[in-house]
Nucleic acid binder design. Structure first.
Length: 171
DNA sequence: GTAACGATCCTC
DNA sequence: AGGATCGTTACA
């Protein structure tokens, strides 16, 4: 098991990063508690041309600011007033694309995953590289995945809703 | 200032 | 199938 601190891993094209993250492990160290879980599901959000993405049309607000940063930046936000979502920004700075961690082993929803990992908004905007509180680990194994449409984006265009941008660990 | 809504989850 | 519950956003 080795920590991924390679910037190139995170600045890769969004879809590639989303696929590469499936089967990787995520470990948090928050308030003295260490939690480790395997990533089982991710979704790619493809920036200004993706109607499902927060930065569609080039939207740049205080909330979406981390998405405009360089790959490896952590983007956390609150949805429905009660659920935290964990995203990892991809690509280069100025290209607002990100990968949503949709599920980890032992948690079948994005909000459950952040709860399991004790994620808080403190991490928002930080880099995941050389971060003492959160890291991605590689167990060296090859994992396969299946693709599916994304969830919970009924406001997006039909084309974007149908796109297979969700990647699930094949068991 | 104010109102509407949302990348969800849990309990009927 | 519906309610919880509040930060972010857009608009006045």
């Amino acid at each position: 098991m080795k920590v991924i601190n390679d910037l190139n891993f995170f600045t890769a094209p969004t879809i590639m990063l989303a696929q590469n993250l499936v089967g990787k492990w995520i470990e948090t160290n928050i308030c003295g508690k260490t939690t480790r879980a395997q990533i089982t599901e991710t979704e790619a959000y493809l920036g200004i041309t993706d109607t499902a993405c927060h930065t569609f049309g080039g939207k740049h607000t205080p909330r979406t600011e981390p998405m405009w940063q360089i790959g490896g930046t952590i983007y956390i936000y609150l949805i429905y007033g009660m659920h935290l979502m964990l995203n990892i920004v991809s690509e280069s700075a100025g290209k607002p694309e990100a990968v949503l961690i949709r599920a980890v082993a032992g948690a079948n929803g994005p909000a459950k995953a952040t709860k399991l990992l004790n994620i808080t908004k403190n991490l928002n905007g930080q880099s995941i590289i050389n971060n003492s509180q959160i890291k991605i680990l590689d167990d060296g194994k090859i994992y396969h995945f299946t693709t599916a449409p994304r969830v919970g984006i009924s406001y997006a265009s039909a084309k974007d809703q149908a796109a297979h941008l969700r990647f699930c660990l094949k068991t």
